[in-house]
């Protein structure tokens, strides 16, 4: 855990460096005061310094003092990690396919996948919930609330109302 924290500290530090680099190309100061690059530069500078302070704090602590905080490992491995990745993956699926396939189809697939794989819910319940979450919510949001959830971009699917 100590090592992972160190890694995190380094990530913060590197991040602050990239922001400094990015703000370099922006205007620093103009006649009416600070330009676009002014604050990002100074803020990321302070951030960099603070991440160094944090790293130093971690280095100065003894490995023993980390033991009492519970788990040895900060991040899960194995099946737990797998579950996390599935959720993230499912969301990526939605992001990629929500517009091409349309909301209803993609949400339907999304729900079925999550409910069965992670929730281990029975088939019938899964289908009911998935259907109402996708087709049901679509009707509710588009008709009653005028929220424009996407139809499919593929003409054939759009033709049948998806």
């Amino acid at each position: 855990m100590r090592r992972t924290s160190l890694a995190a500290g380094i990530v913060f530090f590197v991040f602050s460096l990239t922001v400094i680099a990015a703000s370099w190309s922006l205007e620093y100061y103009s006649f009416i005061g600070p330009g676009p690059g002014f604050f990002p530069f100074w803020l990321s500078l302070v951030l960099g310094l603070l991440s160094v302070v944090w790293i130093v704090q971690i280095l100065r602590s003894t490995p023993k003092s980390w033991k009492g905080t519970g788990e040895e490992r900060l991040f899960p491995r194995g099946t737990a990690l797998f579950r996390l990745l599935i959720i993230v993956g499912a969301l990526c699926f939605m992001i990629i396919f929500m517009e091409p396939l349309g909301f209803q189809l993609s949400m339907f697939a999304f729900m079925i996948f999550l409910l069965i794989v992670l929730g281990q819910v029975k088939i019938l319940t899964t289908l009911i919930i998935a259907a109402s979450s996708s087709f049901g919510l679509f009707k509710v949001f588009t008709m009653l609330l005028d929220v424009q959830l996407p139809h499919a971009a593929i003409p054939f699917l759009a033709g049948i109302g998806l």
């Binding site: 929500m98 729900m111 959830l149």
Partner: peptide, 17 residues
């Protein structure tokens, strides 16, 4: 086991909307 998926669905709609 059901709630988490429904929450996710609503969050997708919410974020999109």
């Amino acid at each position: 086991s059901i709630l988490f998926a429904v929450i996710l669905a609503f969050m997708v709609i919410g974020a999109y909307g």
